[in-house]
Design a protein around this nucleic acid. Structure first.
Length: 210
DNA sequence: ACATTAAGTGATT
DNA sequence: AATCACTTAATGT
């Protein structure tokens, strides 16, 4: 675990902190599609993402889902931060988008490290900030972009977190993530294909020009 | 060969 | 942009 730590966080944290994380953290490897956090959960440890990607979803009363944003390596979940300190329930659901490696840090260490390590404090504040920006972006996307724009952004994001411009997904799944119907997704994808921006296949989409 | 699932399409609201 | 109803195409058994 130490190697993984140093590779991904070595430049961020001082050696003593890396040591502590190594001692107290629990390494966890999870497959794609694994539900890390469910809405209403109390969070008992905060995850540091080492590799892979996680998608963060919001859900309404009727159980309809909507993607907020993706997390990548080096990120941590802002919701977790708030939950750990305030002992409140999670407002979001987190599902691994790809296979992922995580280091779980017990909640108690959060506050302790905040005052003890400057780099940790910076990391947490920095995380909060970038998460905030992502949220704003998500709001912009919802408020100002039509479905075609949202779809395009989603494809881009998805290609990015997977480090692959061949996205393995069905129209149905995209529709679910964006909270729309499959027919709409199919139609919009079709027009994108006609514009030469993507190539459609069964169960996958190839990004050509974004 | 048949059933199942994914994707395409016209019409309607 | 959503929904319906239907078609076509790909894939699994």
């Amino acid at each position: 675990m130490l190697e993984e730590l140093e590779k991904n966080y070595g430049y961020l944290f001082e050696d003593e902190l890396l040591d502590e994380i190594n001692n107290v953290g629990v390494f966890k490897e999870v497959p794609e599609g694994y539900k890390l956090i469910e809405i209403g959960d109390y969070i008992k440890s905060m995850p540091l993402l080492v590799s892979g990607a996680i998608k963060i979803l919001r859900e309404d009363e009727k159980g309809d889902e909507l993607i907020l944003y993706f997390l990548e390596k080096g990120d941590t979940c802002a919701m977790t931060l708030a939950c750990c300190m305030g002992q409140t329930k999670s407002e979001i659901r987190a599902i691994t988008e790809t296979d992922a490696k995580l280091i779980m840090i017990p909640v108690e260490k959060m506050g302790e490290w905040m005052s003890k390590y400057k780099s940790w404090q910076n990391f947490i504040l920095q995380s909060y900030h970038t998460r905030m920006l992502e949220l704003l972006e998500a709001i912009d996307t919802l408020a100002f972009l039509k479905m075609d724009g949202r779809l395009l952004k989603h494809l881009r994001d998805k290609a990015m977190v997977n480090h692959n411009d061949l996205i393995q997904v069905t129209h149905q799944e995209i529709a679910h993530d964006l909270h729309t119907s499959r027919v709409v997704v199919s139609r919009l994808l079709k027009t994108l294909e006609n514009d030469g921006k993507i190539k459609l296949n069964r169960n996958s989409i190839k990004i050509l020009d974004l």
